[in-house]
Design a protein around this nucleic acid. Structure first.
Lengths: 193, 193
DNA sequence: TGTACATCAGTGAACGCGCGTTCACTGATGTAC
DNA sequence: TGTACATCAGTGAACGCGCGTTCACTGATGTAC
């Protein structure tokens, strides 16, 4: 092989990473394969050595996005006291910083209304990724059974993703800040933490 | 003029109506002008006698969508007792029927994550339409000042739009129904009604 | 160890399609006289 | 009242562009011998 054994795997991961960023920033239809590949100083033709289709990449990028935000929010959760972890995550999720940077933020908030329209097989994969992410988050959600905590996590985060999308639509800086502050209180209260 | 005086106005409204449906069903990029015009048994060329661009139509369709859902939910609100109007609206918003029919449902829920990426001028228009819609809804939200009630309405409905988008992504019928039922309870409770 | 061949990630031209927008044209009706 | 002309909603071909996907090719390195 022309390239070292792990080179291909690395390239694949770099494509996914660039895609995860671009899809969240520009939408699933706003990120062209040629642009993605140019991000890595490659040309578009090589893409199909790594993925069967753009649709497959979209799924991978969606999963990767969740991994990224888990890493992004991990320190916030760690730093918070035992009983304040969910509160800390809610406040980080609804923070200006997250709102202003969809490119490395929650993929569900960035893509929610578009995902519904993908083929069924894609949606099944999305769901699996979402469910997996939610099951991780549920660790810090108070409640009885695992199922109860996961249901609560999904309710809170699906709501917050809509709220974040609304905040991102706002063109007035001050209005957005006030809205996000109110949202933090609303969801912390709704979470009962 | 070849057509009666009000004919042009009527055609314009029919285009908006068809667009409002198609945009909500297929997304802002999924509805082609030729398709819209075909819905009215017209050809695509005539479109530009009515609108300067597709972007202008998108704004009009978004506004129209809100008018439509106000009409759609009006009887639900009227039928409910004075103190139960918001509860009734929340339950209608999160109902299976609304979930299964994005085409004549809430435009914010159907398009949320795409709207962020439109040009600033479009977003300003979206916001105006959203604010207007929220101000109407706020009538049935309990609270002190108008501003307080509007803020609460925006919080509830932006959250519910995200929750609805999540429900729509679910491929499992039963899971969706359970999730929507839980969401109704969650938001009725969060609204304090 | 050296040589011939196979492999395959990456290249870049090309294909095909969808779609927003433009434009010359049509023809029914309104208006001026 | 009748005639000539103007108007303009609607038609459909064409343009131009973006973009997903394909494909013949390249060339560095791995492998067989």
């Amino acid at each position: 092989m022309r390239y070292s054994a792990e080179h291909k795997q690395q390239t694949r991961e770099r494509i996914i990473k660039a895609a995860a960023r671009r899809f969240r920033k520009a939408g699933s239809e706003g990120a062209a394969i040629a642009d993605l590949m140019r991000d890595l100083k490659l040309t578009h033709g090589g893409f199909y050595r790594h993925f069967a289709s753009k649709e497959e990449l979209l799924v991978q990028a969606f999963e990767h996005g969740f991994e990224e935000i888990r890493r992004k929010f991990a320190p916030v959760i760690e730093r918070a006291p035992e009983k304040g972890k969910l509160k800390a995550l809610i406040e980080a999720y609804l923070d200006q910083e997250h709102c202003d940077n969809p490119g490395d933020g929650c993929p569900a908030a960035a893509l929610a209304s578009e995902l519904v329209r993908r083929p069924r097989s894609t949606r099944v994969a999305f769901q699996r990724a979402l469910a997996q992410h939610i099951s991780v988050i549920a660790w810090i959600v108070p409640g009885g059974s695992d199922q109860e905590r996961e249901a609560k996590a999904l309710m809170l985060f699906s709501g917050m993703s809509g709220t974040l999308a609304a905040a991102r639509m706002m063109t007035d800086e001050q209005q957005r800040r006030q809205f996000l502050d109110a949202a933090k209180k609303f969801y912390v209260n709704a979470a009962g933490v």
